[in-house]
Design a protein around this nucleic acid. Structure first.
Lengths: 185, 185
DNA sequence: GTCTATAGCTAGATAGAC
DNA sequence: GTCTATCTAGCTATAGAC
């Protein structure tokens, strides 16, 4: 089946893989086509407005992922401890234990003025709201819960940068453990 | 003086400005030429190996800046408290109070495999060594000093990302204050 | 929905005058 | 050391067959 239809989810996943490792401008239609095993014209058939639409589609996927794997989990009826564990397991997978870069950062640099800025901000806000809710359920007060939620994001992002720069993924693992402890204690 | 020689430091500064806001692949010879007020051919005269050499020159400048404004300061003979204040003042300037992105991150994505990875890692290591030294002088033990030094980098990088994504530079300012407190207490 | 082929443009890079 | 002019390759995007 040389011309079999490639599943939409698989295409999005491959596009994300390229964007997150090469950035927006560093990802050409040629490399995106190669990664998805589609020809350039086929990509344009699926994403008529080209590369920008592909990046938006990836961000839309990331928003869905966040809703399903973070927000829904942290607002579920399990115990706070259980919710915390499940969410952090997902985060660990998302970044492959500190080896993969964050797609939101990869798409925040670009020659054209930040067309993705609002979408990215909205996704970060999903994370903040969800972790604030969890912290409240752990018994922290509002101020401390806000602080913890932002700490989740800044610690993950900051350690990802250092872990990848120094090629020490373990730094990321340690940070996740420390974060979990911050909620419990 | 239409053809006056543009100072090397000014050229580096303008190149950095473009790279840090547009990333490596997002910065074209045309935009780099426009920013430096030089024609493309003049840039090639100064940087024969083109864009890659320009980025290396910028990273070399950043390494020098780190040596002068961070390492030398933190290894000076002033009191730990004074050294801390001077270094953090420099950091605040470097990122314009949380409004500017980090050049090291801007150069860590690219279509070509990470040609800047080692240079970037070396600069982060300068920061780590300098802040470890400071923490030891504050009376912290070796383990805690290592932790604090890495915390400086991860907290700065992480909060920069969130501050810029949410367009709330104050998050960065707060983080700098918290970091200073971490050393003193 | 996929493909081949190609248009039209912009990228990085160079030659050579001043 | 700066410039204008230009080359070639790679880019985004489209046309049209199957």
């Amino acid at each position: 089946m040389a011309h079999a239809k490639v599943e939409h989810d698989v295409v999005i996943d491959k596009l994300m893989e390229v964007f997150r490792s090469s950035g927006y401008d560093g990802s050409s239609m040629a490399t995106l086509a190669e990664a998805t095993q589609l020809k350039k014209a086929s990509l344009y058939h699926r994403f008529p407005r080209g590369k920008e639409e592909m990046a938006h589609a990836v961000l839309s996927y990331v928003a869905d992922w966040t809703q399903n794997r973070i927000v829904d989990v942290l607002f579920s009826t399990n115990t706070p401890k259980e919710r915390l564990e499940v969410a952090f397991k997902a985060i660990d997978e998302l970044y492959d234990g500190g080896r993969l870069d964050c797609i939101l950062r990869a798409l925040s640099h670009g020659s054209e003025a930040n067309v993705f800025q609002q979408e990215i901000a909205a996704i970060f806000q999903l994370w903040i709201d969800a972790f604030t809710h969890l912290a409240l359920d752990f018994g922290h007060n509002q101020t401390e819960s806000d602080r913890l939620a932002k700490l989740v994001i800044t610690k993950i992002q900051g350690t990802l940068i250092l872990a990848r720069a120094l090629q020490q993924p373990s730094l990321f693992q340690e940070a996740l453990d420390e974060l979990k402890t911050s909620f419990i204690s």
